[in-house]
Design a protein around this nucleic acid. Structure first.
Lengths: 107, 107
DNA sequence: GGAACCCATACCCGGTTGGCTATGGGTTTA
DNA sequence: TAAACCCATAGCCAACCGGGTATGGGTTCC
């Protein structure tokens, strides 16, 4: 029972990885080298994190000569938004049920 | 640089833990024993996960005799919603910047 | 009071993972 | 062509984490 939310949450759970994704959202397309500066970790680690982000669909890569440009894929966050909405929906429906119950008790 | 998002994402990253939270959202207040059935893990593991969820503010516990009732705290998801909105906002503003650039180039 | 019950904590263990260095393939530059 | 550069992969290690069993405190029921 390992749905799509799994990879998304686990991928975003790591601070370093999430910071990389945030930078790509803020600054747009960037090379691995550019992302490595101020990442606080070595270049191979950055590459590995970008690989995980890519596998989760959160980023896209584009090769140009010896450079590799990465960019955020915001649409990949949709399942996350849906999930929170679903949770809020359950919450609300339970509240409605309670309201109905109270209404029936009132009669 | 370990903000509130950290604990939230990491807490929701584990499938078992997320399933417990989902059940509490769907079914409302439940005891540890009730949650242990169909959790697929032992009672101590459920207790530990509930402890993590509690520390993240995602659940609340209430003691009644020898039972402990847990319930979901939907408000704790707010930072997550804010974060996604922020990411979408960055995305949008960069898009606006591009639009402005194209507009200026058009002149 | 003793037994059964509910839950939390302590402790241990194996798998996962996030970091590193070393290295090599591919590309540009001198 | 040689050298410098960009990036990905491989291999390694320490730390974290999610699972288990054992146990004990607190509560209800005979």
């Amino acid at each position: 029972m390992s749905d799509a939310h799994d990879m998304l949450f686990r991928t975003l759970a790591d601070p370093t990885r999430r910071a990389l994704f945030e930078r790509l959202c803020r600054e747009g397309e960037r090379t691995v080298g550019a992302l490595t500066t101020r990442a606080g970790v070595s270049q191979p680690v950055v590459s590995k994190h970008l690989g995980v982000l890519k596998q989760a669909g959160l980023v896209r890569d584009r090769h140009e000569g010896r450079h590799t440009y990465y960019s955020a894929q915001l649409g990949a966050l949709a399942p996350l938004v849906d999930w929170t909405r679903e949770m809020a929906g359950f919450w609300q429906s339970r509240f409605d049920d309670l309201e109905d119950l109270l209404k029936r008790m009132d009669q």
